[in-house]
């Protein structure tokens, strides 16, 4: 495998990692601040993708689609938080798992009812189509570069939001001691709704971005949700920094494993067998990474050590 091909895979891994970060950031905030496990987070990813595909097909503008994805996922997030999630904060994790599992069924079947079972396809907008020549002699799609860039900007924006704004102070205070900040006069219900909607909007954005790279279909959210869980286990609950590092680690490990392992096995196995063994093992890599982190740091790389 040549160096330029390797570099291309590294970029693909970064792009995948950035998408995973958008997905994990909201999840980890909701875990950290509200102590809630939300299995339906993948549904907001799907809602974002469908809203983007629907609006982009109707208006012809991908960027309007992105706005629609953000808006749809945020509004759905606010509604779901106020109608369902709010009742679950005081419940045990089992009830949270069940209720959000039920939400997945409702959202998936509702989307199937509205859009049908056939996948939709989104085109890359003309502004971001084509490829650029990068140093090292590789042509890399502009769109994927833009995803990496946008992911990076959003990460910086989130760090700023959590680290340097009043909302961020409240979020961090809510993680540390929710009774105390309620006693200090912060409207905790509203804070929770905002945090939840922020997370679902980011998930919707991730879905819309990926909609041009993969097909948009019912059930697209759950595999990504489970990867986001792996990210959070690696990064540590409640940590945005952990989510970023974990997402990039998972993205790079998965992408590089899938391209390098079959090549590595080809050194001592016949090609067809090497391909099979390599790709089967590559699908295990991120979980092995997770297991490794668990053995050495059970609360994740950046998680608070809890007794």
């Amino acid at each position: 495998m040549s160096l330029s091909l390797l570099l291309e895979q590294v970029l693909n891994g970064l792009q995948f990692g950035m998408m995973l970060f958008l997905m994990s950031a909201g999840l980890t905030l909701v875990f950290g601040v509200m102590g809630l496990i939300n299995l339906a987070h993948g549904s907001f990813y799907m809602i974002g993708a469908f809203a983007c595909a629907g609006v982009a097909m109707a208006t012809g503008s991908f960027f309007l689609g992105l706005v629609a994805a953000l808006a749809a996922a945020a509004v759905a997030g606010v509604l779901v938080e106020m109608l369902v999630i709010r009742r679950l904060y005081d419940r045990d994790h089992l009830d949270q798992v069940l209720a959000t599992f039920a939400l997945i069924l409702v959202f998936s079947e509702g989307t199937r009812y509205l859009f049908g079972s056939f996948p939709l396809y989104l085109d890359v907008p003309p502004l971001l189509s084509g490829a650029v020549a990068l140093p090292g002699g590789i042509d890399y799609p502009v769109y994927r570069l833009a995803v990496i860039l946008a992911g990076g900007l959003l990460a910086v924006g989130l760090f700023w939001l959590v680290g340097h704004t009043r909302l961020g102070i409240r979020i961090r205070a809510g993680e540390a001691d929710r009774e105390m900040i309620a006693a200090l006069g912060v409207d905790i219900d509203r804070l929770y709704t905002i945090v939840f909607a922020l997370g679902t909007a980011l998930a919707g954005l991730a879905g819309a971005i990926v909609g041009t790279l993969q097909s948009v279909q019912v059930g697209m959210g759950e595999p990504v949700l489970i990867l986001a869980f792996v990210v959070i286990v690696i990064g540590g609950i409640g940590s945005i920094k952990g989510a970023l590092i974990g997402a990039l680690l998972v993205g790079l490990t998965d992408t590089l494993g899938r391209s390098l392992l079959p090549v590595a096995f080809a050194a001592f196995l016949p090609p067809s067998e090497a391909n099979a063994v390599g790709s089967a093992l590559a699908s295990l890599l991120i979980y092995l990474l997770m297991a490794g982190v668990l053995v050495f740091r059970p609360s994740g790389l950046f998680g608070a050590v809890r007794a």
């Binding site: 875990f31 102590g35 496990i37 994790h93 798992v97 595999p223 489970i226 869980f229 792996v230 959070i232 286990v233 609950i237 099979a276 790709s279 089967a280 590559a282 699908s283 295990l284 979980y287 997770m290 297991a291 668990l294 059970p298 609360s299």
Partner: peptide
């Protein structure tokens, strides 16, 4: 929450292994 996510992830690992083997 960690336990829920980790058991889910390990099951998914076996799922992907079965799919790609």
């Amino acid at each position: 929450i960690f336990f829920i996510m980790i058991t889910l992830a390990f099951a998914q690992m076996l799922y992907y292994f079965a799919v790609s083997w």
